[in-house]
């Protein structure tokens, strides 16, 4: 069992998400960086559907109330147990009375803490992923207590060293073009795929981007609301693109320029404010 001493900026329980309620307007939520999330579970022998603690922007601190094995993956938040630095991407044993703390980070944004046996928390619509806006759970607060869901764990895996990502503040991501692409000005499309964009602001709903020039339409159009997804890049009238992330709405009425390839999504979620992103046009066929 763990007690939250400090929740940091935004810390919440997340699992693989609520994948079957989009037609009812419920965002999928779930772990933003599925790569680090899945490894966090694997390292302590959890099933992939177990929930973990997602720490966004750092600053979280926990007190260990019962001995537990955990793994910490994702952005390097220099974890410490009491005064000692501990390794990430490997299982670590925490003992009753110890304190686990995560700092902020200059590279990456999100870190996962998986507990062997999974984290116990209420399930809403088939998932433990927190989505506060609709009352589907809430972020962690000081004094919250987290228990382990089960004592049953599988064989834990080791991560090969080369599979541990370096969280750089400049990434290139593949984008599947949207059917709205032809609505955009040709020079804007060219600029979109040849210049870099700075992340100005981000949360679990989306990341706001700013480029050298605004991305413009050939002429103003009315878009009829249609399905969007985690990774869809919308362009509101300001011309500054917005990348929709795990907690985004299920439908949108802004023109979209494309959607980031699923495999590349986790890199997008780990770009900190002022980090840069470039896009590469990617045809599926």
């Amino acid at each position: 069992m763990l007690e939250v001493l400090s929740p940091g900026v935004y810390t919440s329980i997340q699992d693989q998400g609520r994948l079957t309620y989009r037609s009812y307007g419920v965002p999928i939520s779930g772990a933003m960086d599925s790569y680090a999330f899945e490894w966090a579970n694997a390292l302590v022998g959890n099933n992939q559907h177990e929930a973990a603690i997602e720490v966004m922007y750092g600053g979280a601190k926990f007190k260990i109330l019962e001995d537990v094995t955990v793994s910490i993956t994702g952005a390097p938040m220099t974890p410490k147990v009491d005064c000692e630095f501990v390794s990430m991407w490997t299982p670590i044993q925490l003992n009753k009375g110890q304190q686990l703390s995560l700092k902020g980070t200059n590279s990456g944004v999100i870190t996962y803490i998986a507990l062997a046996g999974g984290v116990d928390s209420p399930e809403y619509l088939g998932s433990q992923s927190v989505y506060e806006k609709a009352g589907l759970g809430r972020r962690l607060k000081k004094k919250d207590r987290l228990s382990i869901k089960s004592n049953h764990v599988l064989q834990s895996l080791n991560i090969p060293h080369r599979e541990i990502p370096t969280y750089t503040n400049e990434v290139t991501l593949r984008v599947v073009p949207s059917h709205h692409e032809s609505l955009f000005d040709e020079l804007s499309i060219k600029a979109f795929y040849s210049t870099s964009f700075t992340v100005t602001k981000g949360d679990r709903m989306g990341a706001l981007l700013k480029g050298d020039q605004a991305i413009e339409l050939r002429k103003p159009v009315d878009i009829i609301s249609e399905a969007v997804t985690f990774g869809t890049i919308q362009v509101p009238p300001s011309g500054d693109p917005v990348v929709l992330l795990a907690d985004s709405q299920t439908t949108g009425g802004y023109p979209t320029i494309g959607s980031i390839m699923t495999e590349d999504l986790w890199r997008m979620t780990q770009i900190p404010p002022n980090g840069k992103v470039r896009f590469k046009r990617w045809n599926l066929r």
């Binding site: 599947v176 059917h179 249609e226 399905a227 990774g231 869809t232 959607s259 390839m261 599926l284």
Partner: peptide, 12 residues
């Protein structure tokens, strides 16, 4: 019929 992303398809 067109992709929304690599794991979703839209029919309009």
């Amino acid at each position: 019929i067109f992709p929304l992303n690599d794991q979703s398809i839209t029919v309009s």
